[in-house]
Structure formats: structure tokens, C-alpha cells
């Protein structure tokens, strides 16, 4: 089994650009590669905290996740 990193990373998505359903669906799809916590900061933003990530994906997990959410949000 691949080593996991405990470092926490945060992404704050503006709900003007990203759909909440897309964020939730991306969390489900990425659930095997890392652990996710979802926090609503205010009505217009959503914070995702990523932790316990596979070591090989750790440097790009934030960006890969954001791209994935963008792909799911496109065409809303």
C-alpha cells in the first residue's frame, strides 16, 4: 500500500464559478486517494480540506482536484 502524507491542504471554491454538486461529486471520486473535509465558509464559498493523501499525488492533489471540479462544473 502506498505511503500517505498527513499534510493538510485547503482550497476555497467560489460558488459563482464552481457548482456545489460538482465539488461533492469530485470528493466522492477522489475519496480513495485522499481524505476530504467540506466546510461552508459563507453563502458564496466552499472550503475543502485535503489530508491523508497518497505520497505520489501530494504535490499536485490541490490542482488536480480543482481541475476535476472545473470539468464537472463546466456546462452548468
Amino acid at each position: 500500500m502506498e505511503k500517505r502524507r498527513k499534510n493538510k491542504k485547503e482550497i476555497i471554491f467560489s460558488l459563482d464559478f464552481y457548482r456545489p454538486e460538482a465539488i461533492e461529486a469530485a470528493i466522492r471520486d477522489f475519496s480513495e486517494t485522499a481524505s476530504f473535509e467540506l466546510e461552508k465558509t459563507d453563502g458564496k464559498k466552499m472550503k475543502v480540506v485535503i489530508s491523508d493523501c497518497e505520497a505520489s499525488l501530494e504535490p499536485v492533489i490541490r490542482e488536480e482536484f480543482a481541475n476535476y471540479v472545473l470539468g464537472l462544473s463546466y456546462g452548468k
Binding site: F17, E63, A66, N67, L70, G71, Y74, G75
Partner: peptide, 20 residues
């Protein structure tokens, strides 16, 4: 803007912020 980002999704990491 979404469509342009989507075209670049395989070449770059993109993130959208700011005021609509």
C-alpha cells in the same frame, strides 16, 4: 471563459476566482 479553461484542462492546472 469556462470553455477556454476546459480546452486547457489537459495542458495546465486552472483555478477561477474573483468577482463575477
Amino acid at each position: 471563459i469556462y470553455a477556454a479553461c476546459y480546452v486547457f484542462i489537459d495542458r495546465a492546472y486552472l483555478f477561477l476566482e474573483g468577482d463575477l
